[in-house]
């Protein structure tokens, strides 16, 4: 009788390599771990022993650092972060989600001012940021009604879109996903801004409502550290805008304040 190779391979010993990892990494319930140990063949057992040895050595490396006193700058920054978090925690416990987010933004701004006196460049940057938000809202109003050419590159070519705009804006961009909020990407386009290229990403929900994310380098955005959301209402549509690491971002759309804020928060989290 000829034994088929397939039958031969399927020995009762063959165990999934992922299970072996999970065993080393203590990620299996005890009963399953024991069941697995009972089924190991010699080769598995050897591999398990090697991985266990690696794990033990790794865990011994610089173990003393956990007990060392922290360098002063780290301690200071950690303490500052703790103060911010504590405030946030208290606010979250106070009440409704949207309300507390708004409050938190306001507080964040105030606190920021207390710790670092605003540099002289700040007033100018605030004006820049407001202008940026206005440009975003206008760009929204211009392209939003377009039926045939709302975007230059459609969502179908998402990879190309991201590469192209990252190159033109001089920084790797991330396309935020707003599907959980009911908005699908339509696509994007390149636009001229005050000091260089800007990008606009358009999203649409099943009801046909469109929102746009407008972004680009912004003079003075570095001077205003801190991330506060601001609502810009004097444009054709409302826009929430914020600054982050030299870039301005604005999310515009004909939505009510809380809905737009929730979307802006989702965007900000993903950038």
């Amino acid at each position: 009788m000829i034994r088929s190779p397939a039958m031969h391979e399927r020995t009762p010993h063959s165990i999934d390599e992922n299970d072996l990892h999970a065993l080393v990494d203590r990620q299996l319930p005890p009963a399953r771990a024991q069941g697995l140990r009972d089924r190991l063949d010699a080769a598995d057992a050897r591999r398990l022993a090697q991985w266990e040895a690696q794990r033990t050595s790794l865990r011994g490396l610089h173990a003393g650092m956990e007990e060392e006193p922290l360098p002063e700058p780290l301690r200071t920054t950690a303490t500052r972060l703790q103060a911010l978090q504590d405030r946030q925690t208290r606010i979250w416990h106070l009440g409704g989600m949207a309300a507390s987010v708004l409050l938190a933004f306001a507080l964040g701004w105030t606190l920021h001012g207390q710790w670092h006196p605003p540099p002289p460049a700040m007033a100018a940057s605030v004006a820049n940021a407001q202008r940026f938000a206005q440009q975003a809202a206008v760009a929204h109003a211009v392209y939003q009604p377009e039926q045939r050419h709302p975007v230059e590159v459609a969502a179908a070519q998402q990879e190309h879109l991201v590469q192209w705009l990252s190159k033109r804006l001089g920084r790797p961009l991330t396309l935020p996903v707003l599907t959980p909020q009911g908005f699908e990407l339509v696509g994007g386009r390149l636009l001229p801004g005050e000091s260089g290229a800007r990008a606009q990403f358009m999203y649409q929900n099943p009801a046909g409502q469109r929102i746009t994310l407008y972004l680009g380098a912004l003079d003075g955005a570095d001077a205003v550290a801190g991330t506060a959301f601001h609502l810009h209402t004097s444009g054709p549509v409302p826009a929430f805008y914020w600054l982050d690491e030299g870039f301005g971002y604005a999310l515009s759309g004909p939505l009510e304040r809380n809905a737009l804020l929730a979307l802006a928060t989702a965007v900000h989290q993903q950038l």
Binding site: T77, L81, L84, Q85, T89, H93, V101, A104, T227
Partner: peptide, 10 residues
């Protein structure tokens, strides 16, 4: 983290 602390949910 200090700049992004608003993102952290209690």
């Amino acid at each position: 983290a200090c700049r992004k602390w608003l993102l952290w949910r209690s």
